[in-house]
Design a protein around this nucleic acid. Structure first.
Lengths: 130, 130
DNA sequence: CAGTATCCGGCCGGATACTG
DNA sequence: CAGTATCCGGCCGGATACTG
């Protein structure tokens, strides 16, 4: 859980000025969580290696860390099948699924405004150059 | 711009499996951006020190970095008044303001589900302990 | 298969001091 | 006031090798 301590500290230091969405951002948008949740939501229940391959550039160590975090937060469910070789399946939970509209909202904002951001960056860099 | 290279790299390596909300997450939810945008949205145009005090635990160096990033992305507007002493004002842009519904959505999700996350964590930790 | 163990580099953010 | 310059520690994530 990457930046959580930061938010928590800030919230406790200056409670009245705390950004109300701080804690939830740490839960939902910490690193690798969106591709993992997205993959689980799109392609359903998956094994460890499937997720690993689908995400592409994540290492097993980090994937394990993120999956544990998401499981602890209740956003995914891990099922262990005691077979040989072992089989483990991950699926999105109801709580995780409840994020779908939010993600859709974000995707909509992106498709509408991402090119505006791009243009802004371009203009800013052009001005800085001269 | 903190984790951007990561997302970009992943997207270019495995385009077909890329999480579509990756890039926008880096823009909107990179560190300190939500409290800055929130403060600017709630309290209107503010000077550097006002923001610094309101956010509470951020250092000037980091605040400058984040403000520059947000300005470059077009989410805020910086106005420099050439006086002595200098006066600089920051305000949220139309593009930044367009994030308000999204933030509201996030706040709603948080108020509905944050205690579920808390309970899940508690249960998980209790199980791990034994 | 589904991870764990170790090592390691880079980067980010904090602290501190200074400036036009 | 609104920053910049420097230094520095910690942490996170990647690479690699290994295991029940």
């Amino acid at each position: 859980m990457p930046t959580k301590p930061t938010w928590t500290a800030r919230a406790s230091n200056v409670p009245e000025e705390a950004c109300p969405i701080g804690p939830v951002v740490d839960i939902v948008f910490s690193r690798w969580t969106t591709p993992i949740l997205w993959s689980l939501h799109e392609h359903g229940r998956q094994r460890f290696v499937e997720l690993e391959r689908r995400i592409g550039t994540i290492t097993p160590k980090v994937l394990t860390q993120r999956l544990r975090q998401l499981e602890r937060d209740g956003l995914i469910v891990r099922t262990y099948h005691p077979e040989v070789p072992p089989r483990v399946e991950y699926e999105i939970s109801d709580l995780g699924r409840s994020l779908a509209p939010l993600f859709a909202h974000l995707a909509t904002w992106a498709s509408t405004n991402l090119d505006t951001v791009e243009r802004s960056r371009h203009d800013y860099d052009a001005k800085s150059a001269r």
